[in-house]
Design a protein around this nucleic acid. Structure first.
Ligand SMILES: [Mn+2]
Ligand SMILES: [Mn+2]
Ligand SMILES: [Zn+2]
Ligand SMILES: [Zn+2]
Lengths: 138, 138
DNA sequence: TAAGCTATTGCAATCGAATTGCAAATAGGC
DNA sequence: GCCTATTTGCAATTCGATTGCAATAGCTTA
């Protein structure tokens, strides 16, 4: 498959071994519309014969190597999503519904000039997380 | 003590029992400049003879009753802080340093008009969390 | 393409925060 | 002071995250 060959090349590029578990984990993340928890990825890959711990380690390794990103969205569970390939490889904002737990990836959320100054007094903002009630939940 | 009598009144006002563990927990939160984790509160109260689980339950009860707020700031640990007494009892934004873990309470962080519209398409934002590198850490 | 070295895997065990069950203690109304 | 519903203390449990270690399997090299 096309995707698989591509993933293999990317992993090899980093000097890492292109194992089936690793490539499948990466492909799975890329197939999802939203960040996936370790439990979700495992649930999908265990039936294929991949071990839960191996998945766990690969998820974290992929993050360490820049191929994926890990975020804590407020429910004490890590969620993983593939890094943006092209333009913005940086973290993007997320919206989490406190009612149904749905996570939405957002582009270009900006703070007002005043807020930006305020935040600069404290530090350099690298990540924005919004929480609230999604339109479906109200 | 003044604080204690005040706390007692507030708890009684809610129809709840003003137990030593409960009042001490509330006073402790109010003595802190930053949100405190359950572990931190327990560490402070256990030497005084209060049980870890009791502290845990009181922290959550206080939140349920509106006297405190609970947030997940990105490290898989709940943090508790007293509700603002006067003007804005609502949740305020926080900044968390991903390096040192320091949490800073912020006032009035606003999104740009455009971002606000974008977010409205998704849901009603009730909480904003900023993460990044604090000025002390660079 | 077979051997060898090392990264990776599988599985059991451990960790720690969060959560629960239940009997004993106690706050507050009477 | 008595009574009862609430709260507490302590042990046990849950569950995601994390680790140790021996077995396995990529990849490099000869
Ligand atoms: Mn995303
Ligand atoms: Mn705060
Ligand atoms: Zn929702
Ligand atoms: Zn810092």
């Amino acid at each position: 498959m096309e995707m698989m060959a591509e993933a293999r090349a990317e992993v090899r590029e980093l000097g890492k071994r292109a194992t089936p578990a690793r490539l499948t984990t990466l492909l799975f993340l890329r197939s999802q519309a939203r960040p996936a928890s370790h439990a979700e990825v495992s649930r999908a890959l265990e039936p294929l014969g991949f071990d839960k711990t191996t998945v766990f380690r690969n998820l974290n390794d992929l993050c360490e190597w820049g191929l994926a990103q890990k975020s804590e969205l407020g429910d004490h569970v890590w969620r993983f999503e593939p890094s943006q390939s092209g333009s913005h490889r940086s973290k993007h904002p997320h919206f989490v519904c406190v009612d149904c737990g749905t996570v939405t990836c957002m582009d270009q959320i900006q703070l007002t000039r005043g807020s930006l100054e305020t935040s600069r007094d404290i530090g350099k903002v690298t990540e924005i997380l919004l929480r609230g009630h999604c339109n479906d939940c109200n």
